[in-house]
Design a protein around this nucleic acid. Structure first.
Length: 203
DNA sequence: AGTTGGATGGTCT
DNA sequence: GACCATCCAACTG
């Protein structure tokens, strides 16, 4: 079994959030966002990667949380193997030279195996088949458990059960413009070695 | 250490 | 036909 601690997330609103996939209403791709909370919304980006969201709002509101990074706890070698499998499946380059890909993955520190939204999906073998899955069911193949409720005021550092949680701006949403680009809706566990990028120094 | 460009294909205008 | 909620290799300095 592969398990890990979620250390980085981003919140996305529904129609009101111009950075959200739900900004233009329901489409073929984002249907799961409009479904019940606690279910997965998985989509494909850049033709080869996948990203995992957890639907958070009531049905129809289309709000969700993107899982951007996970700190591996159990099944590290299985994750490494899954990363290799995904690389070979999606990259012609890695397909042509699988040995090079294997050596590359072997050199990745355990902490960094799921240090990015697409890496999370690769390490946990998540793809479109998981879209819409109920993540809160006991015994679900893909599952989120032990979630601790918390509060985060914009721009604040908040004490969570696993340490300090820092709110920052979301990544890759510049094109959405203001005020959406500046909303502090990315939340990271301070000091985690598994963040997709280090938390900002100041504030 | 930081920046840039290529990979890669479904979805939406 | 353009756009991506990305990652990695190959540069620069």
């Amino acid at each position: 079994m592969r398990t890990g601690r979620i250390v980085e997330v981003e919140a996305y609103g529904g129609a009101d959030d111009r950075a959200s996939h739900a900004r233009s209403g329901r489409t073929r791709r984002n249907g799961a966002m409009f479904g019940p909370p606690g279910h997965a919304y998985v989509y494909r980006v850049y033709g080869m990667h996948h990203c995992l969201n957890v639907v958070t709002g009531p049905e129809g509101s289309a709000s969700a949380v993107l899982v951007r990074a996970v700190e591996p706890l159990e099944g590290v070698e299985r994750m490494r193997r899954a990363r290799l499998e995904r690389s070979v499946a999606t990259s012609r380059r890695d397909q042509a030279d699988e040995g090079a890909a294997a050596r590359r993955l072997a050199a990745v520190p355990a902490d960094r195996l799921a240090a990015g939204p697409a890496l999370v999906c690769a390490a946990f073998s998540i793809d479109l088949a998981d879209d819409g899955l109920d993540l809160l069911r006991d015994r679900a193949p893909l599952r989120i458990a032990g979630a601790a409720p918390g509060r985060n005021r914009p721009g604040a550092r908040t004490r969570g059960p696993d340490g300090t949680i820092i709110a920052t701006t979301r990544i890759g949403v510049e094109p959405a413009g203001e005020p959406w680009a500046s909303l502090p809706w990315r939340f990271v566990l301070a000091g985690s070695p598994s963040l997709s990028r280090p938390a900002p120094a100041g504030r």
